[in-house]
Amino acid sequence: MIRLENIVKTYSDGDKSFNAVDGVTLDIADGEIYGIIGFSGAGKSTLVRCINLLEMPTSGKVFVGDKELTALSASELRSERKKIGMIFQHFNLMASRTVIKNVIFPLQYSGLTKAQMYEKAHSLLKLVGIDDKADAYPSALSGGQKQRAAIARALVSDPQILLCDEATSALDPQTTDSILKLLKKLNKELGITIVLITHQMNAVKEICTRAAVMENGRVVEENDVFNLFANPQQPVTRAFVDMTSNLSRINALIEERSPLTELKKWQCIMRFKYLERSACEALVSYLSRTYNINLNIIFGNIEIIGGNPIGGLVVIADGRPEDITAAQEYLRSINVGVEVILSA
């Protein structure tokens, strides 16, 4: 659906120049929810603007559908842009127009009659759940409602692609969640391809099928979301994955010499990581019954990503050293990562 070929975007200021996007090649399939994640300044917003050419890449090619956008004239590009909806972090609704007038904005001069425009806009406002706000001005809406209005506006010209530039970053966690659910629903019901730019790993985790991790203008890692979380390869990916889990907090506790980490004889602290799709088994009870060790769970974090459980546990294990070793061997044999963090 979307193909980016070796996109470079250079900004220059006098004799200093800076590559905001530095040679990115991406393929995004039809019907996918594709995440692009990175910290501020990684170049992800610039990259997404290269898809609809709000930013003209310094070099590289952009294909959307079967058209090469980078080869189109200005007016051809304008008509292609109508097939690519976009929503923004700060919603960008027009304050002087009511919600419904904002939604029909892209339809002016489209050849539709007024009645058709309003009918279409109302059906979209119903779809996003704010049809009762049609005649309100944006200033009277909450953040979540504003983003819903913006989504309705982005969808009104029946695009095949929806670009979301930090669309949930200005919203509180609950609203973020409801907007993500809405995006997922739109993806399912309309079959629209969604590109989600974010610095919130949770957003990727919730709805994306695949994701790319960006750092310094480059895509450093790309994978389906389960594998991205289960086997992060790059330090920046690991940093993002750690943000969504509390399993690394044990390190801080040990450093602080928390009473919890004062171990007695035959005790050790271990971290289990579910690497493959194996988290459903009754691990803890099995280990204590079979190897006669006590397991005290201090942190646990298990999530469902892409339909599969993923995560891990931090436990204090209490048992004879040979039993603990045997238990570790068993865990490795069923592909659970084991790491002894501290032992007495």
Binding site: N52, L54, R81, K82, I84, M86, N92, P106
Partner: peptide, 17 residues
């Protein structure tokens, strides 16, 4: 807000528009 101009450009609005 420059964001409004950007949004209008993304919708395929002409410059005169």
């Amino acid at each position: 807000d420059p964001g409004l101009v950007e949004a209008a450009e993304a919708m395929g609005c002409s410059r005169i528009g």
